[in-house]
Structures are given as structure tokens and as C-alpha cells.
Design a protein around this nucleic acid. Structure first.
Length: 726
RNA sequence: GGGCGAUUAGCUCAGUUGGUAGAGCAAUUCGUUUACACCGAAAAGGUCAGAGGUUCAAGUCCUCUAUCGCCCACCA
């Protein structure tokens, strides 16, 4: 055996010197692409990268998912799986557009309407491209062994084709429909948003109790008197004896100069003990009231427009913002002696996740996915349903998890998921923004056509709206594999084996993928879901840019090395639990990388030319080898159960405090005795096996050492060496 | 309002089916013996949030309480 050039192991370990070089070597080897892996890699293992939004740069949350996923993928690859980890980015419709709009408004003082659709889209595309390039480089610098040859983008041509195919399939099946509903209108972003994009914020508000007019018998309470111009009814509880005499009557009354026709109705949803126990029903501006309107057949009267301005209420009210109108009306009620009480309360205000705008419920014509509509299961018999069986999208989503076809780690999130589905309402998928997939619907007079392009003939106009970004990302596990074509990739890698992602997008994304996949393909999108927690600062609070607590992963790796950051993100990070990331922790793993480097240097310098043959070990060394193999078994099992946080910690402890502190110290004696040869073999086996096992966690330092030991041919790279235990 | 998680050494966290409390970092003392000072050795540090219960035995199982955090929700 050729001597190893130990001068290459310069002390101390300098991460920066190796990381770029090694990533390049890995990439050039082609082994990130499963098609190029050696023949022993037969059984597929597939996973997608949750596509980062092209809204800027990666943060610690991204670094976390990259560290965990790359560790799993490298482990599976070494185990001999035909391992695919498929990268891509998400156009993130609202998030990206509102970011660019904000920039433009700040720098040029212009709105999107000043700039126009075409020009805005051009600017967004440029911004998205820039973000994309940054993000890809950051993924690479984290050491991610992603198959770049299959990179996808939610808005690129193949994905757009998948989106339009999915839309048309669901439209033709009656599962996508257009309807007039009270939706969540974001006056700031000038678009609708789905229920999930709403954040409830506690705010202080005034609860006004008053009568519409002098002759009106029932006082009502509301925090929004300005919407009362749209009232068509007053609802009371059916068992409320105070008001039972009025139920069924219609009373005309003058409310601040506007004539209202108010029907008194009884509805179980009214709380007797809240306020006066009577609720002014405003079907056009409240979702609960909308439902009551359907139940009791009430008309819709809209009094607020898309800009959040009044359209009703008389000359000095019309055109005013709702907040201003509220004050004016309250004053009039006081002046007229109609105000009974004004009370400060805290209430939950709905705000838009992306823009922070206060949601104004408005009746609008929008596109929806029907989650409760029955249809015959359109696929051959599958695990989740039989062909022709009557199901709903909700039922399919339920069955995916209930049946265990998809499992969620940690399993308590399965309950959260079930609960969410139970409360799920039709999904509003149309957005009044410009960046995204334009709805593939064409209108000509009363005719409607669904398809990617206009039908023959003049006069067809495409729907102005675009699709919710989650509609396209819901297709991600198969749109990235060539669907709707029956490609070899699709056949080999779908369903995915694992989906690893943040627990915050369980509903947004994981649930939507299950919906899309179970309906369009008839099977679950992935067998297992692994949800990781959020990266917190040392203070235990969520990192945020505005408070200056956000760590930039690139700054951290610059300081401590990528391997160190990866370990810091994995160890102590149990599935589903939030975890804290801070400098001292990362620093400790930088020291560990150096420890590995130096221990290797010692072992190699004392084992030059040794031929590894396990059978020539003496009894004592065999016993010690067994001790390691037991730990190795535990570590392997931990990783297989996706308990990387345990595996990482055990590796660290064993390498440092057993192998380095004890066995390396002992070896200094062994090397002086007649046990020398056995000891040399023993130490070399231990080093090599530990480097292999450490590789998924700390790929750079281990590959750097391996390369010095085994040369730089692509076949000898540590990345594709077999895992030392089956 | 409903649900979930956390509470173990100064800090960050382990503790699998109940069997005498563990690790790393920090701090203390000692040590520069040819892998490493990004080091080693030693010692120190805990009524396992509180109360009650089950058990021969509880950090672990059950009930309640407290504090912190998160998610869901149509009290206007």
C-alpha cells in the first residue's frame, strides 16, 4: 500500500480551503443524479426539496431543512439506494409580487397600476431570477447533494403544463367552480387570500351597543357600526324569551339617514350572553352572517368597496375609509341618543400574512376547489379508495393519513392534520395579482372555455386572475417528475419516500400535496412526512430580521465552517420541536471538525502501509471493535427512524470521548508493544468506519480526509462508499 | 373558547417498554508527555416546575395547578 501524504493534513483544519473545492468535485462526479450511481444502487429513494420562495435569501429555517435532508439523502445513498433529491424554487406569487411592489413604491413612489401588468411582471421576473441564483448558491454552499439536472421552478414551462392539466381535470370534474362568496379581501394587497393566509392579531376595539333607530325595539352590539348600512336582519337565539315576540317580523327603520328593512330571525349560532344577545346580520361583510343569509334566504347588501371605502350611508359617509366612517356614525348615534354603551374589548382582527392589511370580508366572484363535493374515485383500485367509490377530496385527504399510507413524524401532528381537515372549507384559489399562473379560463359573451390557450375564433378573453401559489406547489412531488406524462422518473420516484419540511407549512403545503396527489394520481404523494421545528434564537424567540435576531447562515459558515453549522442544526433538534441555535453551539462543532482532522492525522501517521484484515485482530481489539459496532447499530437505527438528533450526538460522544480520548491514548502504548499490528488495523478500521458514518452529518471534513487517504478519483469518493452496516 | 408542546446542572438538551439522575458548553483545579490548547485529567454542580394518586419502585404512568410558547376557532 502506498504511503499517505500526511503533509496534506495541515493543522488546524481549514474549512474554507476545502468546501468549494469538494462541492465542485461532487457535482462533477455526477453522483447527485441517481442515473449515474453505480449498479449496486437499485432501489429508489426519492425526496423533493421544499422549494424556497424566490423572495430573497435563505435563512436559518432553510439551512435547517438542507442539513437534515442532506444528511438523510447521503445516508440513503451510502446505504445503496438509487437516491434522488430533487431541487427547485417557488415563485411564491403574493409574497414575491408584494416584495417587488414595496420596493417600487419605496424607490419610485409608484403603484402596480402606474407601472402596468407587463412591466411589473418583467421586474418581478428579474428579481426572482436574482433571488433564485442567490438561493441556489446558498444551497450548494450548505453541501446539499441535490440533483441539479432535474431542477424545477413552479412557474416554468413543464410545471405550468402540469398546473393547467390539473386545473382542467378538476374543472371538468366539477371540483373547481366559480362562485359568488364572501371572501377574505386584503385591501392592501388588493387581492383575495385563502383562510390559511390569515393571521389573527389581538387588538383593542370598542364594542358599541345601540339601536338602529328610535322605533327599533332591539338594541344590538357591534365593533363595526359602519357595516350596519348593509344589515338586513337581526338574529337572536331561538330560546331567548326577550325577543321571541319579534321573530319573523320585518321592521323598517331609519339608521343614520338610511332606510333599513330588518327581518328578525332566530339562529342557534347567536350567543345569548354576548352583548345584547341580538346580532345585526350583515351578509355581505361577514362570513358568519353570510351563512345565516343562506340559511334564512336573506339578501346581500354591499356597503364597502375593494379599497376599504364606504359606498353607502349618505353623502358625508360615502367615499370615507371604514375607520373614519365608524367614528362619524358613533358620533351620530350619540347625538341622536341611540348609543347605549361603549365598551373597550380586545378582539381578534384578521390580517393578511404577507401585507399585514386588515382583512375586509367582501362578496366576490372567485374560483374555488370544492372539498365536500362527492364524485366517483376516478382511478383503478388503490390503497385509499376503490374505483368508482363515492368520495370527496376531504375523504381522500383523511384516508391518506388515517390508513397509515402516509405517516407523520412526530405522530401528534396527524391529529392536528385531521382536525384541520374537519374544519376545511372550499379553497379559494383565485388571486387578483399578476405574478403567477393565469387562470386557464376564457370567456366570450356567455361562453366559457377551459384550456391553456384560447379556442379558435376572435373575441375570447382570458380570466384576469392568477392561481394561489399553493395550487402549483401542491403538484410538486409529481410535476417535478414529468407528470402529466408517464415518464420513467414518475414511475420510479412516485410516491416519494419522504417529505421533510417545517411544521409551519403542514396545512399550506403538505395537506395540499395530499389533496392534489390523491385526486389526480390516486395515491399519496409520499410515504412519510418528517416535520422539523423552527429555529429560535438563544432567547427562545423566533428569529426575525426586524428585531435583528436573525442569523445569516452564510455568516455562520464563514466563521465556523459548514460542517459545524450542519451539526448545530441537527443535534438537539428533535422532530416537531423548536430548537435553539446560537454561536457557542456551532463553535463546539467547529472544534469537533478539527478533532476529527487531528485524530485522523494521528491514526494515519501511525498506520502507514497497513493492510486491513479484520481477522488478524487480537481478542482485545475484537472486543473493542464489537463495542463500536454496537454503537454503529444504534446510530444506524436512529437515522432510519429519522432521529438524526440522537445519531449525531452519539457519534460526537463516541468519536471524541471513546475513540480519541481513550483508544488513541491507549494506542500510544499498543504501538510500542507486540500488539502493534493488531492495534494498527484496529485503529484504521475504526477511523474509516467512523468517517463513513460521520459523512452524512459533516460531509466536507470527512471527504477531505478520505480524499487524502484514498486519492481523488470519483469512484473513491466517500460520498458513494457503502455504509459500514447493513 | 378548543387543542398541542415545553418545564431535568448556570446555559443548550438527552433520558426509548417505570428499576439508584446523563451529555455538551460555561465556570473551578491541575497538566503544555511528539494528533489536537479548536487539548487532556480531576473534582464540582440537580427535592427532575408544584401538589396529589397508581406501584415494591415514578423524571418516566394518571389527575389537578402554575409559568412560558405554539396552533386552531364565525362571540358579533
Amino acid at each position: 500500500m502506498k504511503d499517505i501524504d500526511l503533509t496534506l493534513l495541515e493543522q488546524p483544519y481549514d474549512a474554507k480551503r476545502y468546501e468549494t473545492l469538494l462541492y465542485k468535485k461532487w457535482e462533477e462526479s455526477g453522483y447527485f443524479n441517481p442515473d449515474n450511481l453505480p449498479g449496486r444502487h437499485a432501489t429508489p429513494f426519492a425526496m423533493v426539496l421544499p422549494p424556497p420562495n424566490v423572495t430573497g435569501t435563505l435563512h436559518c429555517g432553510h439551512a435547517t431543512m438542507l442539513a437534515i435532508q442532506d444528511a438523510i439523502v447521503r445516508f440513503k445513498r451510502m446505504q445503496g439506494f438509487k437516491t434522488l433529491w430533487l431541487p427547485g424554487t417557488d415563485h411564491a406569487a403574493i409574497a414575491t409580487q408584494s416584495k417587488v411592489e414595496k420596493d417600487i413604491s419605496k424607490k419610485e413612489g409608484k403603484s402596480r397600476y402606474d407601472i402596468g401588468r407587463e412591466e411589473l411582471l418583467k421586474r418581478i421576473a428579474a428579481f426572482a431570477q436574482e433571488s433564485h441564483d442567490t438561493i441556489i448558491n446558498q444551497c450548494k454552499s450548505m453541501g446539499s447533494s441535490l440533483d441539479w439536472s432535474r431542477e424545477a421552478f413552479t412557474l416554468d414551462e413543464p410545471r405550468t403544463r402540469a398546473v393547467y392539466t390539473a386545473f382542467k381535470t378538476m374543472y371538468d370534474a366539477g371540483l373547481i367552480y366559480r362562485g359568488h362568496r364572501v371572501v377574505n379581501w386584503d385591501p392592501k394587497g388588493q387581492t383575495t387570500i385563502s383562510d390559511d393566509e390569515i393571521i389573527h392579531e389581538e387588538r383593542e376595539a370598542t364594542l358599541y351597543t345601540f339601536k338602529y333607530g328610535k322605533d327599533f325595539p332591539i338594541p344590538i352590539s357591534t365593533t363595526r357600526p359602519e357595516t350596519k348600512f348593509g344589515d338586513v336582519a337581526v338574529a337572536v337565539h331561538p330560546e331567548d324569551s326577550r325577543y321571541s315576540a319579534f321573530v319573523g317580523k320585518t321592521i323598517e327603520t331609519d339608521f343614520c339617514g338610511s332606510l333599513l328593512s330588518i327581518k328578525i330571525i332566530a339562529d342557534r349560532n347567536v350567543e345569548k350572553d354576548f352583548g345584547t344577545g341580538a346580532l345585526g346580520v350583515t351578509p355581505a361583510h361577514s362570513k358568519i352572517d353570510e351563512e345565516m343569509a343562506y340559511t334564512h334566504n336573506l339578501p346581500f347588501v354591499q356597503v364597502i368597496d375593494e379599497k376599504g371605502k364606504m359606498t353607502s350611508g349618505g353623502e358625508d359617509i360615502v367615499g370615507k375609509k371604514t375607520a373614519e366612517a365608524r367614528e362619524l356614525i358613533a358620533q351620530r348615534l350619540r347625538d341622536a341618543g341611540l348609543m347605549i354603551e361603549e365598551k373597550k374589548i380586545t378582539q381578534n382582527v384578521s390580517t393578511a400574512e404577507r401585507t399585514g392589511g386588515i382583512i375586509e370580508p367582501l362578496p366576490k366572484l372567485q374560483w374555488f376547489v370544492a372539498v365536500n363535493k362527492e364524485f366517483p374515485f376516478p382511478h383503478k383500485d388503490k390503497a385509499i379508495a376503490k374505483e368508482g367509490e363515492m368520495v370527496t377530496l376531504k375523504i381522500l385527504m383523511h384516508r391518506a393519513v388515517e390508513s397509515g399510507t402516509t405517516t407523520i413524524l412526530p405522530d401528534r401532528f396527524a391529529k392536528v392534520y385531521e382536525h384541520w381537515i374537519n374544519n376545511l372549507r372550499d379553497w379559494c384559489i383565485s388571486r387578483q395579482i399578476w405574478y403567477g399562473h393565469r387562470i386557464p379560463i376564457w370567456y366570450k359573451e356567455s361562453a366559457i372555455h377551459c384550456g391553456p390557450s384560447a379556442p379558435e375564433g376572435d373575441g375570447w378573453a382570458q380570466d384576469e386572475d392568477t392561481l394561489d401559489t399553493w395550487f402549483s406547489s401542491g403538484l410538486w412531488t409529481f410535476s417535478t417528475l414529468g407528470w402529466p406524462d408517464e415518464t420513467t422518473d414518475f414511475k420510479m420516484y412516485h410516491p416519494n419516500d419522504l417529505l421533510e419540511t417545517g411544521r409551519d407549512i403542514l396545512f399550506f403545503w403538505v395537506a395540499r400535496m395530499i389533496l392534489m396527489s390523491t385526486y389526480l394520481i390516486g395515491e399519496v404523494p409520499f410515504k412519510h412526512v418528517y416535520l422539523h421545528g423552527m429555529a429560535l434564537g438563544k432567547d427562545g424567540k423566533k428569529m426575525s430580521k426586524s428585531s435583528g435576531t436573525a442569523l445569516d447562515p452564510l455568516e455562520v459558515t464563514e466563521k465556523y465552517g459548514t460542517d459545524a453549522l450542519r451539526m448545530a442544526l441537527i443535534v438537539g433538534n428533535a422532530p416537531g420541536n423548536d430548537f435553539k441555535l446560537f454561536d457557542e453551539k456551532t463553535k463546539a462543532y467547529k472544534h469537533f471538525a478539527n478533532k476529527i482532522w487531528n485524530a485522523s492525522r494521528f491514526v494515519l501517521s501511525n498506520t502507514q502501509g497497513v493492510i486491513i484484515n479484520e481477522n488478524t485482530l487480537n481478542a482485545a481489539h475484537q472486543a473493542l471493535l464489537l463495542e463500536w459496532r454496537n454503537v454503529l447499530r444504534e446510530i444506524t437505527e436512529d437515522i432510519e427512524k429519522y432521529n438524526l438528533y440522537l445519531a449525531g450526538e452519539k457519534l460526537y460522544g463516541f468519536f471524541w470521548h471513546r475513540f480519541a480520548d481513550v483508544w488513541i491514548e491507549d494506542s500510544k502504548t499498543w504501538f510500542q508493544s507486540d500488539e502493534k499490528e493488531s492495534a494498527q488495523i484496529f485503529m484504521r478500521i475504526l477511523l474509516e468506519e467512523q468517517l463513513r458514518v460521520l459523512h452524512p452529518f459533516m460531509p466536507f471534513v470527512t471527504e477531505a480526509i478520505w480524499r487524502i487517504m484514498h486519492g481523488d478519483s470519483k469512484e473513491s469518493m466517500l460520498m458513494i462508499q457503502p455504509w459500514p452496516m447493513n
